[in-house]
């Protein structure tokens, strides 16, 4: 086959014209080129500057921070851990649960066969194999060397794929503008956030806010280094039967539950 190019015969619905130089077509091309250049140029400039690397300085790779939650000690109706997290990290609810931030929540479980009820806090489970970090296209979701899973708010583009991948409903997207943020817990509209395991406290050797608050009521949450066999939390895990929520997925959560 050979191809030849000629003027339109009207097959596209337009009026056939004589074979002449089409000035309007040239003008259209020139205009399109200018418009294209004005759109692309700013992007090229930004590309040249690049983006910052996620920092995980200070994290000790020999440690793995984790929690053990004894459900039998978790008081039904108590939301001390949730309130402490809100106060510490500066997030609040507005009465719209579907779009409100939910860094930590209390879940009530009822066994339909026996009627027995239990209550437990659910937050980011700080998985060893976090699906959120796997799916994040930019690497904004990442796991620190000490096992804490975080979001780099400067690299998050707000695609929400991590929220689709998280098995625990533990991530929130900031749906509206924020005020009065805490300097140690930067947040921003259009990015994804979740429990940081109070990394700013942990790095100073202080337990997360929820653990501290719970100690004053039920004392259900234990925090520590689960990679250290001599830590208190590891000894309890080695002694008693504990479980990981959706342990079947193989993501190896750093938060374990006892008496669930």
């Amino acid at each position: 086959m050979t191809d030849r190019s000629q003027s339109c015969g009207g097959s596209c619905g337009c009026k056939p014209e004589a074979e002449t130089v089409d000035e309007s077509r040239r003008g259209f091309l020139a205009g399109a080129a200018m418009a294209g250049a004005s759109v692309i140029a700013p992007g090229v400039t930004l590309f040249a500057y690049g983006a910052g690397e996620a920092q995980a300085a200070g994290a000790d790779p020999k440690k793995r921070w984790g929690m053990l939650i004894d459900v039998s000690k978790c008081v039904d109706g108590c939301t001390g851990c949730v309130t402490a997290c809100q106060t510490e990290n500066g997030w609040k609810t507005t009465g719209r649960p579907a779009t409100d931030p939910q860094w930590i929540r209390k879940v009530t479980l009822r066994d339909p066969k026996t009627g027995a009820t239990k209550s437990a806090p659910i937050m980011c489970q700080h998985c060893a194999e976090p699906p959120c970090a796997d799916v994040c296209p930019t690497g904004a979701s990442f796991k620190r060397a000490d096992g804490i899973v975080l979001v780099d708010r400067h690299r998050c583009i707000g695609c929400r794929y991590c929220m689709m991948a998280c098995p625990y409903k533990a991530r929130s997207f900031v749906h509206e503008a924020l005020e009065d943020q805490k300097p140690h817990a930067p947040r921003g509209m259009g990015t994804v956030e979740g429990c940081t395991l109070c990394v700013h406290r942990v790095d100073k050797g202080v337990a997360p806010a929820c653990v501290e608050a719970c100690a004053k009521s039920g004392g259900a949450i234990m925090f520590g280094d689960i990679a250290d066999p001599n830590s208190e939390i590891s000894k309890v895990i080695a002694t008693y039967a504990t479980m990981q929520i959706r342990g079947d997925l193989g993501v190896d959560p750093g938060v374990r539950y006892r008496n669930l």
């Binding site: 799916v135 296209p137 707000g158």
Partner: peptide
Amino acid sequence: LGRPDRLTVAMTNYNFRSIFAWNV
């Protein structure tokens, strides 16, 4: 996107474990 202004971040930071990054 929550932050469409960060499109260049998506174009310059690739997490090759992510099918999203591969899709880009």
